[in-house]
Design a protein around this nucleic acid. Structure first.
Lengths: 221, 221
DNA sequence: GTCTATAGCATGATAGAC
DNA sequence: GTCTATCATGCTATAGAC
């Protein structure tokens, strides 16, 4: 996941980085422009010059990571589909294409990847909903492609059921990454989301089994 | 899930109800005391009289639902354990004890149950973290009991792995309930979280299979 | 492009009459 | 317990010097 290719102004980039971190750490409304600009060693006026309002700033923060992230997911899935050569892609592979980019973004840890995923969770939970439309728009293609792939892999599931289970899988992934500290606390420090491969394997194992459950649909009431 | 038994003052209760709704709808920091008191038809001073600060108000809002909800979960699990008469409780039953109280709270829909679950998601995602300790404290007993039950049901899983998968299951449940509208959007309105039993069955089927996955641990890289 | 200063407003909390 | 009035503070956004 590479960031925008433009040679971003130093201050503009610093503001984006700092805003990402502070938004994720303290919440959107709770983060003042003053806090951002002072930590970014920029001027208070700069944020209204480069972006034009606080609302536009958070959209910029989100878009910067979200777009390349979803592109990467789709690229991986497409590669798997080419390798499969007409056959359906295995459930595990589809899940890997879905999970790996964000997990690596978080684990790579350089700068604010970690903060970004927290932000996504916040955007869904926090309503404000200035950004809910953006999210929908930005995720539409990804959702459609992954639904199609999963439906092909599990043709005995109804389309609705695939939607439900994709929703479940997203829940697994979001809560695991965004609230990793809760896991660490409730396990008294014994479980940590440090290893990319370990975390991926655990999530994929869990979700793949979930997707394959009840092959003839609804055995238990 | 019954609320506090005290004959709550009318205004105090109205403030709690309204605050719950507004906090969940617009976020904590974004909701002003003025908005709460005006909608609750109470006085601005009342919130500082009954609770003593805005921070204390949100704690009160959370505690009011969280405590009875976790009690109910533990009661159901305990009942299942008595019925099992020494045998381990089935994975599906444990998950039902975990999921049913909040799902019913949401679906029952009278007043603010729906809002409450959104709040929980927000509390985890939103950091502020005045309430992260409260959450830990309030959930400690629940976490420990459900971990023990699940470990008994799936003795071939390591204790760590049980922690991970419980974390995954919570993710499924939280995202399903709190962000039900995302599911509705991405499925073009074909999936809705209306039926309690339907939602429960789907979540339990998915998670039970996830818990039972890879009985000898980690077959795939 | 960057910075300072400030306008204009909303907020949380309090003091004191009733 | 309830209400009004008010304080002090913090905020976003803008105008204008450099």
């Amino acid at each position: 996941v590479s960031l925008a290719p433009d040679p971003l102004h130093h201050t503009k980039r610093a503001i984006l980085d700092t805003a990402e971190r502070l938004f994720a750490t303290h919440g959107f409304k709770a983060t003042s422009l003053r806090a951002i600009t002072s930590e970014a060693e920029a001027n208070l006026g700069a944020v209204n010059y480069h972006f034009s309002s606080k609302d536009a700033l958070i959209l910029a923060v989100l878009r910067r990571r979200m777009t390349p992230l979803n592109q990467e997911r789709i690229e991986i899935l497409t590669r798997f589909e080419q390798e499969a050569d007409g056959q359906p892609v295995a459930v595990e592979k589809i899940l890997e294409a879905l999970f790996r980019p964000p997990v690596e973004l978080v684990a790579r840890g350089n700068k604010g990847g970690r903060y970004f995923v927290r932000l996504i969770g916040q955007c869904l939970a926090e309503p404000g909903a200035y950004l809910q439309p953006l999210i929908q728009e930005e995720f539409a293609e990804k959702n459609q492609k992954f639904h199609a792939a999963m439906h092909r892999a599990l043709p005995y599931l109804s389309s609705e059921e695939v939607h439900w289970r994709l929703h479940f899988a997203i829940g697994v992934f979001l809560h695991t990454i965004a609230n990793a500290d809760v896991l660490e606390l409730s396990s008294a420090g014994r479980c940590r989301v440090t290893s990319v491969e370990g975390t991926l394997r655990r999530m994929i194992t869990f979700c793949a089994a979930g997707f394959r459950a009840g092959e003839q649909q609804g055995t238990q009431s």
